[in-house]
């Protein structure tokens, strides 16, 4: 994973609430065995509307998306995160995110920034004409008009994002602890610890 520190640039002033992952990437795009190329299907239904935001040349290639409440609700498809990445979005700002989406975003190095609705409203206004900057180190979002909004982020996630750490690799270093747990489970919860007989 690439380290993430500062994301600056144009932002899509999207603002829509309850954007579900079927809107971000419809199901017929899920028939892929790869993570690449999903940008073409991102926001497909919206892109069919003439004059839509995502095909407006003013925002082409914007790295930031500003959305409304409960962004990424619905299905657990990580394809939503891959689709955003493939269209060049590396940060989403919203008043709230669905739990699964924010986890998927994090695991793909997409910054999911939670700000209060008033701050998001202000950024939606600024983004019509001006770029926005997100600084992960100082946990702030700033605009050319001297707006400055602080956001919270889980310290572990911040550490992983800043250093581009692979979570699977990190957990594999805890192998001894996992083995100890498994040993204990075989004694205490044998009915859960026992697995299926596995084909050769």
């Amino acid at each position: 994973m690439q380290p993430v520190s500062e994301i600056s640039g144009t932002a899509y002033p999207f603002g829509r609430k309850n954007v579900d992952t079927d809107v971000i990437i419809p199901a017929h795009w899920l028939k892929t065995v790869s993570r690449e190329g999903l940008g073409k299907g991102a926001f497909e239904a919206i892109r069919n509307e003439p004059g839509n935001l995502f095909d407006d040349p003013a925002y082409a290639g914007a790295p930031i998306l500003i959305a409304g409440d409960n962004f990424g609700c619905g299905s657990s498809r990580e394809h939503a995160a891959w689709a955003l990445l493939d269209m060049g979005i590396t940060a989403v700002i919203a008043p709230s995110f669905s739990d699964i989406f924010s986890s998927n975003a994090f695991k793909n190095g997409i910054l999911a920034v939670v700000l209060p609705q008033e701050a998001v409203d202000r950024l939606l206004e600024v983004a019509q004409t001006q770029p926005i900057s997100i600084d992960l180190e100082s946990q702030t979002v700033t605009t050319p008009f001297q707006d400055r909004f602080s956001f919270e982020i889980d310290p572990f996630r911040k550490h992983c994002l800043l250093n581009g750490l692979d979570e699977v690799g990190l957990t594999l270093t805890r192998d001894a602890a996992i083995s100890t747990y498994e040993q204990r489970a075989r004694n205490d919860l044998p009915f859960l610890a026992r697995g299926l007989a596995v084909a050769g």
């Binding site: 498809r77 990580e78 699964i100 998927n104 695991k107």
Partner: peptide, 8 residues
């Protein structure tokens, strides 16, 4: 439910 990175 989990995403694909979590499946991995």
């Amino acid at each position: 439910g989990i995403g694909t990175s979590e499946v991995e």
